[in-house]
Computed example of a mutant assay.
Amino acid sequence: MEQAQDMNELLLEQVQKLPPLPKTVRDLKLYVEQEGSHLQINKVAEIIQGDPIVTAKLLQLANSPFYSFSRQITTIQQAVNLLGAVNVKNMIVADSLKGEKADVSAYGLNTDKFLSNCSAEVQFVSDWLSHEDKQLSYFLIPCAMLLRFGMIIFSNFLIENKKDKDFLRALKEHNFQNIDMVENDFLGVDHISFLGFLFYRWGFDESLIETICFINTPHAAENKIKKSAYALAITNHIFSPYDGGSVFKINVALNLIKEAKTQGVDFNIDNFTSKLPDFARNNLKQALEI
């Protein structure tokens, strides 16, 4: 326990070393937080347009398959009008953080495959939810973009502190199950809880932070975020790094959809199953028979 606490303190120091958010992102965050419901779209667009790189990245994201707009988005004002200022802010913050160098070998994972899986996870959120609740899709895409970010930070940290081999050995001893327990043993925190802390530190809106915090217990979330917590929990099981899409994980996701209905959150099961990635759909029939 003492070792985990010591590592946790070092991990917090590591967070301090992460590159600061770009000035445009900081200015946009500050404006959105200060103005709240009184913010002006023109002002949001003006802040973004002052930075050609952020402008280009936002237009690229807005025109990506994640959003699937029927027409091309050519101006920042269009993007803000369609997505909402808060979602645009979250998108820009999430994209600015994705540049962190990734090496997830401490988890025994292939980094290229891991990153490809992360992109597929974001696409799934878009494909699945855009047919049921576009606003929820817009809300969760930045969160999905960073859902595995804590693993990247942890792996880089473990490698730097020469603890990666011990960590991987512990994961193997547990057959790559109970990952949260191993993370807590080594670092004093699991990667999802750590992500919630990072979201708070980086000024994501409160609803997104709470969604992360209730990913493992969506039934306990407040009504205002219950749907987003269930959606993220379901996605988390489908794209679990080691056994995502397995019969067991699909069954857990299906049970979460059923549980959500008892909580007043109704997802279309046919839409959900039709949007599953191939690796998960291959196990769907068996999962439905359980």
Score class of each variant (00 low, 15 high):
residue 1 M to E: 07
residue 2 E to H: 11
residue 3 Q to G: 02
residue 4 A to V: 03
residue 7 M to E: 06
residue 9 E to G: 01
residue 10 L to H: 08
residue 11 L to Q: 05
residue 16 Q to M: 05
residue 16 Q to D: 14
residue 17 K to L: 07
residue 18 L to M: 10
residue 21 L to Q: 11
residue 26 R to T: 08
residue 31 Y to N: 05
residue 33 E to W: 13
residue 34 Q to T: 11
residue 35 E to H: 08
residue 35 E to S: 12
residue 40 Q to M: 02
residue 45 A to L: 05
residue 47 I to E: 02
residue 48 I to P: 00
residue 51 D to V: 04
residue 54 V to Q: 01
residue 54 V to E: 10
residue 57 K to H: 12
residue 63 N to S: 08
residue 66 F to Q: 09
residue 67 Y to I: 10
residue 68 S to F: 08
residue 70 S to P: 02
residue 71 R to W: 12
residue 78 Q to N: 08
residue 86 V to I: 15
residue 86 V to F: 10
residue 88 V to H: 11
residue 100 E to Y: 14
residue 104 V to Y: 06
residue 105 S to N: 13
residue 113 K to C: 00
residue 113 K to Y: 11
residue 114 F to C: 12
residue 119 S to D: 15
residue 120 A to T: 09
residue 120 A to C: 06
residue 120 A to Q: 14
residue 122 V to I: 12
residue 132 E to I: 07
residue 135 Q to K: 15
residue 137 S to W: 04
residue 139 F to E: 10
residue 140 L to A: 07
residue 141 I to T: 03
residue 145 M to Y: 07
residue 150 G to Q: 04
residue 152 I to H: 02
residue 154 F to C: 04
residue 157 F to T: 01
residue 157 F to N: 00
residue 158 L to G: 06
residue 159 I to Q: 08
residue 162 K to L: 09
residue 162 K to W: 01
residue 168 L to I: 04
residue 169 R to W: 02
residue 174 H to G: 01
residue 176 F to T: 08
residue 177 Q to F: 06
residue 183 E to V: 06
residue 184 N to Q: 10
residue 185 D to Y: 08
residue 187 L to S: 04
residue 190 D to V: 03
residue 190 D to M: 06
residue 191 H to Y: 06
residue 193 S to H: 11
residue 193 S to Y: 00
residue 193 S to T: 13
residue 195 L to D: 06
residue 197 F to C: 00
residue 199 F to E: 04
residue 201 R to T: 09
residue 201 R to S: 10
residue 201 R to F: 03
residue 203 G to R: 03
residue 214 F to D: 02
residue 216 N to R: 14
residue 221 A to D: 02
residue 223 N to A: 13
residue 224 K to A: 07
residue 229 A to L: 03
residue 229 A to D: 05
residue 229 A to I: 02
residue 235 T to K: 07
residue 248 F to E: 14
residue 249 K to F: 03
residue 258 K to E: 15
residue 259 E to S: 15
residue 261 K to V: 03
residue 262 T to S: 15
residue 262 T to N: 15
residue 264 G to M: 10
residue 265 V to W: 03
residue 268 N to G: 04
residue 269 I to E: 14
residue 270 D to P: 01
residue 271 N to V: 15
residue 271 N to P: 03
residue 273 T to Y: 05
residue 274 S to T: 14
residue 280 A to M: 04
residue 289 E to F: 12
